[in-house]
Amino acid sequence: MNIFRLLGDLSHLLAIIILLLKIWNSRSCAGISGRSQFLFAIVFTARYLDLFFTFISLYNTVMKIVFLATSYGTLYLMYIKFKATYDSNHDTFRIEFLILPAIALALLINEEFTVIEILWTFSIYLESVAILPQLFMVSKTGEAESITSHYLFALGSYRALYILNWIYRWFLTEKLNAIAIVAGIVQTILYCDFFYLYLTKVLKGKKLQLPA
């Protein structure tokens, strides 16, 4: 555990809490992609099945349980409690185009051909693209509420901090996982365009609006 990793995890947690609070306080999930949230729930479920088999640390176990609980909580708020506010007309990204290639790739490129390892690998590949329905939704409507952009910024920061964590671990000559690193870099790149807009617009008090 190093400072980048810890800040990355906290940033991830912050993103999830921002999203839950936004939905809860406004009693609305307008502008949020239920499809991305559904993909994140699949990601956590596939990856954290190791809760039953391996123990790494109390921190690790608690965070996994929190991520699982909050991701299902978000789905509950979006698809049941505040379903009437869900903007499904703009949430049209075909998630099978993400899930099926992630399954295929996990079966082809993995470190060990076991059920638990392939599920882990699948979750890594799927996480790297799970935000696409949300970014697609923002690009389709051409704008995002500030709170939605704060959510995306916290989520992107988590990925960027994980890269710093790997660089740090590299110099500590710790073991690193190539699959996680490649997928993590891909995932971070997806946020670059958004980061640019966030830094140049949202932080200056403007609404995130895409150039026409």
């Binding site: 991830h12 190791d50 790494i56 690193l176």
Partner: peptide, 10 residues
């Protein structure tokens, strides 16, 4: 160094 790690990250 780039393989066979325990999955210690979230």
């Amino acid at each position: 160094r780039l393989k066979s790690t325990t999955h210690d990250e979230l």
